[in-house]
Design a binder for these strands. Structure first.
Lengths: 351, 351
DNA sequence: TTGAAAGCGCTACCAA
DNA sequence: TTGGTAGCGCTTTCAA
């Protein structure tokens, strides 16, 4: 059933039906009611492809979500969920593309075949060929994350530098002097992942500023790697009393490694980092962390994109978020150190 | 740029270009090369909407993934990831719909506006209005999960009954007599969630068979609820020595509750259940569980759907999976009970 | 306030 | 082996 059928049954022309639907031209209350009745009776819905072909808009946005290595992280799920729901609120559908690079078949389909009106990019890199490509061809997009040079582009990002620094200051304030940093997997760092780089930067600078002794590690996105990484940390410097992590998926493994090394959190060892709140609360003790507001970020990204689609000439806008650290239960002043067996020295070793 | 432009530059007709692209009609090697050259030069890609309009296929599949309550679970992420990648392998794109019900706007768009060729349904209920609707209008779909009466429909599911029963037998074999069951949230159970119902069934029957004393609980999909639920369990029957859970998101909270109650896993208390392997390994000790093969299920669902799309008259097919229990570290023979302080009975040497 | 008709870009039928 | 052309179902301009 198509618009012609509706027109015939309502005794009007196809254009009138179209206008009655879109409201782009006045239609007498009478005919509009007549048409609506037929539409309701037949449960008519206009064909999306035809509509897209005729007016050049698909009412679909592309969500480019490459796997971060072998698999996806919990944070990505939060983004996908919030983007999809926000999009639905604006009557947009979301088309998924698992593309890691500009040259992916799936990415090419998205753009080249004009399946979507605009795109939201996840897992940004400091130099991002996907974004370069989009900007070059003038395709509307909003990034979750920002490149090294984000001027003139649309994005909603997290101030990873400030967040990692805040973690360092928090630990330094508690009296920690020897702190490790657990980053995302090495391949991602090499690929130029924004969060990994800026986080590392923020950590390093703040640590230098506070005169801390630090070591930095890359760590696979899974529990086993987290555990291995923690073992490495304690092996490299048993006097380490705290760590900062960006690696949500490794968190469970880090805790396990700590437990097996006989370090109790937070008495013997403090853990903090940048992690979506929902996942920070699954570990025991709950993680004191800068909570990634994934829900809000997804929603903002959609809103920016919709705005951009509606106003093609609008100047670039962005949101840089820097959520505060949520104090939970995984940090405390440093304990007596690796040799001590007592867990009850109320006071920090280094005030 | 469109197919006409290509035709003009290659000095052939539009139909020839079309056939050269689709291969549905022989084209001389000469002209095909000429055409290909122009296409490569201009980077031409056919417009998806036009193509969809002309041949009635969108090359897109819909993934209907309703939030399970307030938010999404880790397992859903695994499904989304595997479905998207499997679809990409078949040159299909994936359109997301957060629809919980047949009547959702987003669901109606998917079908009514013919945005997709077929759909994959997640979060099945025993009576599922979405599937009823799809079947009624003859829309090709594959469900991840199955209804009470799955005959004649396409699905890939998990034998939750057998899986939950296997957990019970595993615990009974170890000597546990008082066992709790931690289900998905109550609203989902009331809504008729398949996994929640069949899991509960399998648990109850197997427990009766083994003469166990049991209590069953519903539990919110988050750590806080898990903790609260565990407290309730120990309050209701402090002699409980083990539990079976389907609730992956509550797992961290369950462990926390156990720790706070002074029960060590697995010495004083055993935990097992049905959980995607990746998440079972984030807790310490790692969870002995029937691993949900989410990756495989997503892939199978796509393959079934593609088969169905290519052979509209093919008889319904399905896959019922029943993965074995992966023995990890969270179960052991029951300890001395709630009063005992000794943690060094016959349990495994390794914490 | 309404209708007729020309596209949108592609596919596939009918002829040659 | 190729070209011409009539749709696919909708939007929108032009006329009335």
């Amino acid at each position: 059933m198509n618009i012609g059928e509706i027109a015939k049954r309502a005794g009007v022309s196809r254009s009138t039906v179209s206008y009655a639907l879109s409201g782009k031209r006045p239609v007498s209350e009478d005919t509009r009611r007549k048409i609506q009745r037929v539409i309701d009776d037949l449960g008519y819905q206009p064909n999306a492809s035809a509509r897209a072909l005729a007016n050049g808009r698909t009412n679909t946005i592309g969500l480019v979500f490459p796997p971060a290595g072998n698999h996806y992280t919990g944070m990505q799920l939060d983004f996908i969920g919030s983007v999809t729901e926000a999009a639905a609120d604006h009557d947009y559908d979301v088309l998924l593309s698992p593309s890691g690079m500009d040259s992916d078949r799936s990415f090419q389909r998205l753009l080249g075949e004009r399946r979507v009106d605009g795109a939201i990019l996840m897992e940004m890199r400091l130099q991002d060929d996907r974004l370069d490509h989009l900007t070059e061809v003038g395709f509307p997009s909003v990034a979750i994350g920002r490149t090294a040079n984000p001027q003139g582009s649309w994005w909603v990002g997290l101030d990873h530098t400030a967040l990692a620094a805040a973690c360092v200051h928090h630990l330094a304030d508690l009296g920690h002097r020897r702190v490790a940093f657990v980053n995302r997997p090495e391949p991602l760092l090499r690929a130029g992942y924004e969060s990994a780089h800026r986080g590392l930067d923020g950590f390093t600078k703040a640590a230098a500023e506070r005169g801390l002794t630090v070591r930095t590690y890359c760590c696979g996105d899974d529990a086993a790697s987290g555990q291995a990484c923690l073992e490495q940390i304690l092996h490299d410097d048993p006097a380490t009393t705290a760590l900062v992590t960006l690696n949500e998926a490794a968190l469970g493994g880090i805790y396990r490694g700590l437990a097996q090394a006989g370090r109790q959190v937070p008495h013997d060892f403090s853990v903090t980092g940048v992690v979506a709140g929902r996942w920070a609360e699954t570990v025991t003790p709950q993680l004191t962390a800068a909570d990634v507001p994934a829900e809000q970020m997804g929603r903002l990204a959609v809103e920016l994109l919709v705005e951009r689609l509606n106003h093609p000439a609008a100047p670039a806008r962005h949101h840089l978020l820097a959520p505060p650290i949520s104090l939970r239960a995984s940090t405390a002043p440093p304990g007596p150190g690796p040799t001590g067996a007592a867990h009850d020295l109320g006071a920090p070793a280094h005030p």
